[in-house]
Design a protein around this nucleic acid. Sequence first.
DNA 1: CAGCATCCTTCGTGATACTG
DNA 2: CAGTATCACGAAGGATGCTG
Lengths: 137, 137
Amino acid sequence: MVTTHSESAYRGNPYDASCPTRPLLDRIGDRWTVLVVGILGQGDARFSELRRGIEGISQKMLTQTLRGLERDGLVRRTVYPQVPVRVDYALTDAGRTLLDPLRALQEWSIYHLGDVSASQEAYDQLRMGDIGPNAAL
Amino acid sequence: MVTTHSESAYRGNPYDASCPTRPLLDRIGDRWTVLVVGILGQGDARFSELRRGIEGISQKMLTQTLRGLERDGLVRRTVYPQVPVRVDYALTDAGRTLLDPLRALQEWSIYHLGDVSASQEAYDQLRMGDIGPNAAL
DNA sequence: CAGCATCCTTCGTGATACTG
DNA sequence: CAGTATCACGAAGGATGCTG
């Protein structure tokens, strides 16, 4: 038996309101999670390295995200009792399985950014017309 | 020239705070987006069908999610001027490119649910010990 | 350095009521 | 049926100050 995942036959269904995959999906789709995992995919990193690498993330959110990932068994936290203390974060085996899906998401965003932006502008133009200068007078 | 995406050479980088991929990542990783796109991947659907299919989504969030996707050019909204009115939602070609990445995310959640839950329990047990009955007395 | 604790503001979200 | 509009609330998130 080398089943790494749950031995039960229960299969989550995120379309059910109470399904535990809902919060899980929330976490892995989270904006910061995508970026944190992305960086850790390139190798272990210290807290400050992550913080610098992810522009705009607050200390609070970085800590919170890392704790969540650690709790989920996706990230391993290692403390080196030095002075000053040093903490390394690394993806676990499970965490690494997240790399491909999240990279795909990131790539999709980068690749489709142009089209989406154009679509947004067009959409906003039209709606502008609805309430624009000559609208409903 | 059959480039479907932006002709500019600008490549988004979500690690930059001001990069427009940030809000885009937010949208496509959004909990409701994943589920809405998932349903539309199986074929067009009416508003009420979506609402029934995604247990627990409020009317407001469904509308909001669909509007966002429409604005991004990922979903096409078709109104049939009947009484009562009928509105169909369908993925656009661009929207369909989102199917694989989002399905991967969903599958990952379902597949790893067991492991993650187990890890969470273990983690919470340990932290319980820190402040538990015999802690720091 | 790597956090934790606190305050405070903003935003997302749900509930409710109304319309073409 | 498929929304829009409004309100009201809790949680998300940022800023600041402190600690091992």
